[in-house]
Amino acid sequence: MIRRFLIPSQFLGLSAKLLPWLSSFAALLIAIGLYLALFVVPPDYQQGDTVRIMYVHVPSAWMALNVYLFLAVASAVSLVWRQPLADIAAQAAAPIGAAFTFVCLVSGSLWGRPMWGTWWVWDARLTSVLVLFFLYLGYIALVDAFDDPSRGARAASVLAVVGVINLPIIKFSVDWWNTLHQPASVLRLGAPTIYLSMLIPLLVMAVGFTLLFAALLLLRMRTLLFERRARALRLHSPAAAAARRELVGAPSEVLLRGASKGDR
């Protein structure tokens, strides 16, 4: 019992110290990354200036996958060990992952139109990333779908864990099926097939996005902890206790009459 409260309280202290550092480094790296991507990197010899879309598209795609992995691991931990902070971490991460996935899909579409000649194709890579987006939305919807918050959290956790099967499908879809999407050029066996002048801004943006995720995650976890604590206080407030006493003390006749009318 003590441990269950001790861990969130330690988290509140630690996250308060970490948040200013994480958010300032995230802002700094994203600013540097944007400067490199928009001003320093030369236009690609085949793709022209559309290659600059890569610096938002690829890091957000990596984040879409990594945040989902985080969501699934946190959900598994909350299912197996009932660790309350894991559940809060998963619920805090889901909207961030959905946002990154949305940015990945839209920027990809805006890149596909001039380079492939189409906004969208129903091929393996694009479809599996769209499924990832719906997995995030499904998770968010399930958390709030039950009157009992713990049941919603459990159902959503199961969805998150089962949805992990989609991650290798996304990663290897470009190798397993014919697709318009190019295969990996950074995270592959052997050396990356991308020039250092393009790789460095890409990695700066990726680290910046990762720090942004970490900062948002801590902020949203703190919010969820505050909201839970407030809910608990409201339930145990003097007014709520008085209302319960009144209800219990009421003659059973009154209670039954109330129940038969349908208002519980």
Partner: peptide, 29 residues
């Protein structure tokens, strides 16, 4: 390089979505 109508919306959507998430998260916090 003639691709303004693709490059800028891509950056704009990223800014709007991620910046919006930051603002909403701060407000709820």
């Amino acid at each position: 390089g003639g691709f303004a109508s693709f490059v800028w919306p891509a950056y704009g959507v990223a800014l709007a979505v991620l910046g919006g998430l930051v603002l909403l998260s701060l407000r709820r916090y």
